[in-house]
Design a protein around this nucleic acid. Structure first.
Lengths: 108, 108
DNA sequence: GTCTACATGTAGCGTTTCTACATGTTGCCT
DNA sequence: AGGCAACATGTAGAAACGCTACATGTAGAC
């Protein structure tokens, strides 16, 4: 998939992935890949900064832990994040309607 | 609508609008607004540079004319533009599937 | 004679994704 | 023992592109 097209849509996607269970960065990457049918392959240089941004914005909260000698930073959705996710879903519907309204072929 | 979300999707939208009939910049703006149900209100500083970019890329061809004392630059789709538009529609389908696959709420 | 709609354009900013680099552990294979 | 893949997190700097703000000019209505 054209990678840059994600612009502006990545945030709600990340929030959606941690909606029901907290996950660490690497697991979020895998979850996104799986849910997108393998289409989405985020570089770490995209994901990790995005996570820090979302935490700074107050939509995620993180916590360090060590599992099998490996350090993990686990992120969970805050209540502000939940609201933002809900808003993001709404905005997606609008966005999709707009794009499709324009893109749809016309017989004219 | 969240403005920046357009990123990467504006090009096919513009191409779609001039698919069946050549239009000048201002008319393209109006057509986008109409087809989007008023949701899309492109600033001229977005549209005009985009048109030049698309022309430079070979997807649009332009021609000056004067109508009622006003100068218009009318753009029409080239055959390369047609191909790109078709590709853009395909990419949109993929994109939409990916986003919705991730965003869709799960009962989990 | 002033204001709105029509019409086109440039300069520079800001955000976000990308590429490339940097570091370290665990476990498997040979 | 050595190497490599998967696991795990992160930074620096570049590139793309839509935005705001500015700049200019005509036609027609009030």
């Amino acid at each position: 998939m054209k990678a840059d097209a994600l612009r502006g849509h990545l945030d709600p996607m990340i929030l959606a992935v941690v909606e029901h269970e907290p996950l660490h960065g690497y697991a979020i990457m895998e979850a996104l890949q799986e849910r997108s049918g393998g289409e989405l392959d985020l570089p770490t240089g995209t994901l990790y900064p995005a996570l820090r941004r979302l935490e700074r914005a107050g939509y995620l909260a993180s916590e360090w832990s060590t599992v099998g000698g490996r350090k993990r930073r686990t992120y969970q959705l805050t209540s502000a994040g939940q609201k933002t996710l809900a808003a993001g879903r709404g905005e997606w519907e609008v966005f999709r309607t707009v794009i499709e309204g324009v893109l749809r072929p016309r017989t004219n």
